[in-house]
Nucleic acid binder design. Sequence first.
DNA 1: TCAGATCGTTGTAAATATTGAATGTTGTTC
DNA 2: GAACAACATTCAATATTTACAACGATCTGA
Lengths: 269, 269
Amino acid sequence: MAAEKLQTSNDLSRAVEVSKAPAISRAAAVLRLLGKSDTPLGVQGIARELGLVPSTCLYVLRALVAEELVAFDADTKRYSLEAGVLTLARQWLRRNQFNDLAQPLLDRIAHAHDVTMLGVQIVGLEHMVVVVMSQSGQNFQLSTQIGSRFPALISATGRCLAAFGNYREAELEARFAALRWDEPPTFEVWQEQVAETRQRGFAVDAGNYISGVTVVAAPVWKARGRPSHALVATGIGSALRRGGIDELGATLLAAARTLSEQMGAEVGR
Amino acid sequence: MAAEKLQTSNDLSRAVEVSKAPAISRAAAVLRLLGKSDTPLGVQGIARELGLVPSTCLYVLRALVAEELVAFDADTKRYSLEAGVLTLARQWLRRNQFNDLAQPLLDRIAHAHDVTMLGVQIVGLEHMVVVVMSQSGQNFQLSTQIGSRFPALISATGRCLAAFGNYREAELEARFAALRWDEPPTFEVWQEQVAETRQRGFAVDAGNYISGVTVVAAPVWKARGRPSHALVATGIGSALRRGGIDELGATLLAAARTLSEQMGAEVGR
DNA sequence: TCAGATCGTTGTAAATATTGAATGTTGTTC
DNA sequence: GAACAACATTCAATATTTACAACGATCTGA
């Protein structure tokens, strides 16, 4: 916890140092902190957590309140996220073709294979964000939701990115070292799996990321270069037999190729 | 269009002038502009639209890109919203008790009366934001979605806020004058309807806001004072007979009271 | 293909936002 | 109930960011 605080604090001060608009980095950090917190926070608490000067923190908060991105309870003097963030999210969703195209495909696969399907977007070469989801009725709910963020190289999706992202091995290894798994593979084993992914076109994570949960993923391209999205299937390991995984992977791969074509067509590939 | 630009520009410059963190106001304006736009925008276009200096605009955009709130297409040099806004929205949704409590009620009413149900949050005394929604299967989709923003005094919800918000008449009249309706009522007629709303506990908008669409709304309180939310039913006018509206209103009112109690309990009213 | 123009981007005075201490306020403990 | 402590908030000095003009890159139209 203390380590994470330090981490956050370091990231923020680095961002503030480099940027020519540090107030924005601070504002974003405040928004994320308020999002993470389970309860509304006071000025001092926020300032302490982020390593900010209280007065600066106050001005940041006031600006965010004025923009309706942060709610202020005048009685308790506490701050929390405001519904304005919903409006932005809706606007993003409104004209994101990946969502519209992926949703029916995910629904179909989720139903046919009784798995939870996710569509993720690879953002900033650091993270991926879940942007579409489809649950099969029977499955109990896995703990991901739209908007969830994951490190870019984790689980099956990570193997896809490693396989098709054209990263240098040194960079991959550095980022790999920072990942948290339930049952971490060694870097060598992971590299083999990445190579296999490159060959087969889809990736499998058999309980590494979360014990007992099998994850299958196939990459989607919006344009040439690095994959921009991925289709992900997650299911309880015991429910996915060995043969079923290959079939599921083939299905994912076909859907991912369809999507890549549909999205690439728009940019005139 | 030009008028709106001027409006936006004026709002922004006012916000920048007053605030001690103008970069944040600019950032929020950029995010909203990118959200409104149907296509990605360039630096100059954004700067021109918001009345910013291009170089400042560039720094703002770079900071937002670093925070993963804005996406940058290196080929076209265009900016658009990024999936990071989804993450914030999810965090807001995660611990918003109104959503969890309202969803089943809305589902039930939508199904029973064949209407589209909305839960809205009143934010900043200026706007309301749709935060929950439930569509009855048969209804064709009305053009509201989660995250949509409306002026606080519009339609049936507006009559609720006017009835129970304790505003001074002068302020109501000023804000009323700024509203856009399909078939605007006169201020006097509207005041009568507000008085009736105060008496009955729920409000009706019979085609004023959108021609042919009837809207019924009942206020929800999180604490004493102004209502914090509202339950809203919308349906094609012809499908809602006169008697049905009263019954629907009574149902809404009962649900709103239940919700108010459940939400008020938490704050120890 | 070339010219023109628009656009994105970089350096440098001046305006100003950030800082740290001081003030008033609220909640808590004895 | 009083003193304390933590808190939110304000204020003046200064390090920083903002704005303007110039640069190089890119696109458009002939």
